[in-house]
Simulated scan of single mutants.
Amino acid sequence: MNQAYELRQGRISFSKLLSSGNLVVNNILFLALFVLIGYFALASSHFLSVSNFTVLLTNYAAIGVVAAAMTLLMIAGHVDLSVGSNIAFSGMMTALAVINFGAPPSVAIVIGILSGAFIGGIIGVACGILKLSPIIVTLGMLSLLRGATLLVNPTEVYGLGDTFFYIGNGAFLGIPVLLWIVALAFLASALFISTTVWGRYIYAVGINPQAAFLAGLPVGRLLLSLHVITGAAAGLAGVLLAARLDGVSPGALGMQMELQALTIILLGGVAFAGGRGRILSVMAAWVFLAVLDNGLTLLNVPPFVQLVASGMALVFAASIDAIGTYVAPKLAQRRQVAEQIEQRRLREAKTPEA
């Protein structure tokens, strides 16, 4: 009986060990963020100030809006690599509506968002309805949209007015307007995917689109809608960046933002193949990259070193994706086996000997 008790104790310890390992796997990004904040806090006396955190999050607000929407698309198994160019195109449409056509700010903002949504709709038809490869289609759109933006207006446009300046640099209730917008974007994505039927469809399509189609789910309409939402988010990001900078540079606005969005989403634990992901983790990844960029700037790290750090973050994101794909399920399976063995031994211990 004592031996059985010791074995049970050993098995329970092993089960706890597995649970701890799974906890670390699921929260490795939060641990890394905590370490990163601690390091920069020690390295720079200005890092932990409220004003600095406000600036670093505000600077990353536009890409946060894109990441919040594109996360839903990637969980469904698709990706949009043209969002950076879409940001430039939509921002330019917004600026031209104000400068060249004298449109009111509200109308110009709607034009910018609808421009992005229209591009997303084109991609959605090609990828969601016609079943073309999202990577190939969106890579083509990346170059097409950047060229179209330069064709529409090859020079900088600036001086968008007080309304746009307030959106990009003003505050509401003491909090920057941009932070309100990005917080609402993450909140909307989280509520949509966790509380709606279509949110459950997103996971089902990401896990197995063929099975989802055979089960009668509206796979094509869902993917089309998600591409439109991602495009609209890119359009809104173009508006926000134009407001933040009080102008648009067609060759520079949104440059490499598709890679930033992809890094944030993968770093947040969303599987590139789809079917897995949490909005909270993506939000933590957004903060992680903002902290990394801001901390390196405060330490006067050269820009090319910051590029290296961004590349390492993408590799780290791929590592987290691999861990989530292979290690976490194995830990869960081993924990389940350990619990089954423990339950069997408990039953055997309770059975009286003949």
Rank of each mutant, 00 (worst) to 15 (best):
F53I: 12
F53A: 11
F53Y: 12
F53N: 09
T54G: 14
T54D: 14
T54P: 10
T54W: 10
L56D: 09
L56C: 13
L56V: 14
L56Q: 13
L56P: 10
L57R: 04
L57M: 13
L57V: 10
L57C: 06
T58N: 10
T58A: 11
T58F: 00
T58H: 03
N59E: 15
N59I: 08
Y60C: 12
A61V: 09
A61S: 13
A61W: 01
A61C: 08
A62C: 12
A62H: 08
A62G: 11
I63V: 15
I63L: 14
G64S: 07
G64V: 09
V65P: 00
V66A: 10
A67F: 12
A67C: 13
A67M: 14
A67V: 13
A67I: 14
A67N: 08
A68R: 04
A68N: 05
A68C: 11
A69R: 04
M70P: 05
M70K: 01
M70Y: 08
M70F: 12
T71P: 04
T71Y: 02
T71V: 11
T71I: 13
L72Q: 05
L73I: 12
L73Y: 02
L73M: 13
M74S: 09
M74H: 06
M74Q: 10
M74F: 07
M74G: 10
M74V: 09
M74D: 04
I75N: 01
I75Q: 03
I75C: 05
A76N: 07
G77T: 06
G77H: 02
G77V: 08
G77W: 00
H78G: 15
H78M: 15
V79G: 09
V79L: 15
V79A: 14
V79C: 13
V79K: 05
D80K: 08
L81F: 01
L81H: 00
L81T: 00
S82H: 04
V83A: 07
V83N: 02
V83Q: 01
G84K: 03
G84Y: 01
G84P: 04
G84D: 03
S85A: 12
S85H: 06
S85D: 03
N86T: 09
N86K: 04
N86L: 14
I87V: 14
I87D: 00
I87K: 02
I87P: 00
A88V: 03
A88T: 03
A88P: 04
A88F: 05
A88D: 06
F89G: 06
F89P: 05
S90A: 14
S90F: 03
S90K: 01
S90L: 09
G91K: 07
G91R: 05
G91P: 04
M92K: 06
M92P: 02
M92E: 09
M92Q: 12
M93L: 10
M93R: 00
M93V: 00
